[in-house]
Amino acid sequence: MTHTKLYTIIYVVLFAFATIQAAVEGFGLVDESYWFAFWLIIVLSVVKAVMVAAYYQHLRWEPRSVSYLAGGGVLVALALTAAAAYSIV
């Protein structure tokens, strides 16, 4: 038996996090203090993404170089977005 149980737990966590994100909006937090809600929601998304990548795409069990490859793509996209936005501050 492979990691079925682990996969299930992760699924439940992902499901719950998505619900929390929607709830943050439902309870008016986005209107009340936008930037707090913003970062809360983004962090939840990042955690979810990392979980999917680490376990469902089993990067955890691959050689580190594969994670660097994917991470390189993320880094490139972030550099572009951050620097472009900063350039017009």
């Binding site: 490859l69 390189g72 793509g73 993320v74 490139v76 996209a77 972030l78 572009l80 977005t81």
Partner: peptide
């Protein structure tokens, strides 16, 4: 995975464009 890395940049640039 190599292909996905480029796809990450594609989507990243899309999301980045929106953000920008």
């Amino acid at each position: 995975w190599t292909f996905l890395a480029s796809d990450i940049v594609l989507f990243g640039a899309f999301i980045g464009s929106y953000a920008f």
